[in-house]
Design a binder for these strands. Structure first.
Length: 426
DNA sequence: GCGATCAGCT
DNA sequence: CACAGCTGATCGC
């Protein structure tokens, strides 16, 4: 497609139409409350969530696109200075609430930009997306596919989110007296939390901003900010550290659960070992001295569960077979294990002729990986001394006496607190 | 004093 | 590992 027409998840000057796949921070770099570079197209749900993330956003620039429907745009071709018609259809990406992929069609042919997506063919909803896409393609191949290649390596395989959710339930149910913290981001993994709440008939604590997000998403009963109402808490992933867990364990026995699609690289089960043993074992895969130091420190238990909002390799393979792209590019290039998807899918029947070599920066895999958070992470709660000692000039002291920089304090004023101290309050 | 951006970390 | 995102420092206004 010609330059200067549209941008997807890019927010630099010079396009006539800007498309947002979903509201995760790595796809909104450059997007701010003061946005004025052009119309922003997104899904209905993203449009609903966007003003919460970007207060004061000029809503007259928002263009809502419904999934499964073709929308026509008349744009000005920069080269020929003539009108050109672009059609676009969003398809649910099943990545996080509001996430869509975009199928474009015009005199350039067709272009499919997946954004981040999970192509989970075992789910009913995903099959609707599949039918939608098949119908839209109408037997044609996609000219250019921009693919979420996050886990585009045969060594990446993980179960469906439904199965992973069941594992989480199992872990919580087998620790009936423990408190539980689950690491999540600002958006995503709601289905997992709802599943836990329904099966275990329990509410789930979230921090105040996350509760607002839950309300925007239409969840009214399940979530709470009152710690006394539940033993299960979803906490910001960045504050989910070994130190945090140790701090919590001084108050009450607590386990941590990390739902993560992180390289769960081909990790065959040991003989006679079931999946849950494997999960438990992951905790003990630390280096010997790390295990030793942890054993001394109150035996915190951290479980990671392969709950991924990105497609695994098999799913990517299926997807590529379905859309039969003539050209293909990965959209995740920062990865240190970036591999051009055509390296793996180039041999598929008739798919992708312009075979490019791999940039194989990535190191040997195959060794079992430690699934436990690092011990040297900083203390986030009630630690005045460390930050004060560094002698910063212009900061502020938060509600619980935690030092904040000037920047941090102003961010907090704009958008509210979001730290672990909330857990100790009630 | 404010927002934007960057490095650093998880 | 690298997900998605926080934190503090610095710069320009």
């Amino acid at each position: 497609m010609e330059r200067g027409l549209i941008s997807v998840d890019r927010w630099a000057e010079g396009s006539q139409a800007y498309f947002l796949t979903h509201l995760h921070a790595d796809h909104t770099q450059g997007l701010t409350s003061a946005w004025s570079k052009g119309p922003l197209f997104c899904s209905r749900l993203s449009a609903k969530l966007l003003p919460f993330k970007f207060p004061g956003f000029d809503l007259s620039l928002l263009r809502v696109l419904d999934v499964g429907v073709w929308h026509s745009l008349s744009l000005l071709s920069p080269s020929s200075a003539s009108e050109t018609l672009v059609r676009v259809m969003p398809v649910d990406a099943h990545h996080c609430p509001g996430a869509v992929m975009y199928l474009f069609s015009g005199d350039f042919g067709s272009l499919l930009y997946t954004g981040d997506f999970r192509w989970e063919m075992t789910s009913e909803k995903a099959n609707r997306s599949r039918d939608m896409l098949v119908k839209a393609l109408n037997g044609n191949r996609v000219n250019t596919l921009y693919l979420d290649n996050t886990y585009c390596n045969p060594s990446y395989s993980f179960p469906s989110r439904r199965d992973a959710a069941q594992q989480v339930v199992h872990i919580i149910a087998s620790h009936p007296k423990h408190h539980v913290i689950i690491g999540i981001d600002t958006l995503g993994k709601e289905d997992l939390l709802v599943h836990i709440a329904r099966v275990l008939k329990i509410k789930i604590w979230v921090w105040p901003e996350r509760l607002q997000t839950m309300h925007i998403l239409g969840f009214d009963e399940i979530f709470t900010t009152k710690t006394s109402l539940t033993r299960v808490r979803a906490v910001p992933r960045y504050s989910f550290t070994l130190d945090t867990l140790e701090g919590l364990n001084k108050i009450h026995p607590t386990i941590g659960i990390m739902p993560s699609g992180l390289p769960w690289a081909s990790k065959p089960l040991h003989r006679n070992e079931n999946f849950f043993d494997s999960l438990a074992r992951s905790y003990y895969n630390k280096k010997a001295h790390e295990v030793a130091s942890m054993e001394e420190r109150l035996h915190p238990e951290i479980f990671t569960v392969p709950y991924s909002d990105h497609s695994c390799y098999m799913e990517l393979h299926e997807f590529v077979q379905l859309v039969q792209p003539i050209n293909m590019r990965g959209i995740v290039s920062s990865s240190s294990c970036y591999i051009d998807p055509s390296y793996y899918f180039g041999h598929c029947d008739g798919v992708y002729q312009t075979f490019q070599r791999v940039q194989h920066k990535h190191k040997e895999r195959g060794k079992e990986r430690v699934r436990v958070l690092r011990a040297e992470s900083s203390v986030k709660v009630n630690d005045l001394t460390d930050s004060m000692r560094k002698g910063r000039k212009c900061g502020a002291v938060g509600v619980s006496g935690v030092y904040m920089s000037r920047t941090s304090a102003s961010r907090r004023r704009r958008r509210g607190a979001k730290i672990m101290e909330d857990i100790y309050a009630d």
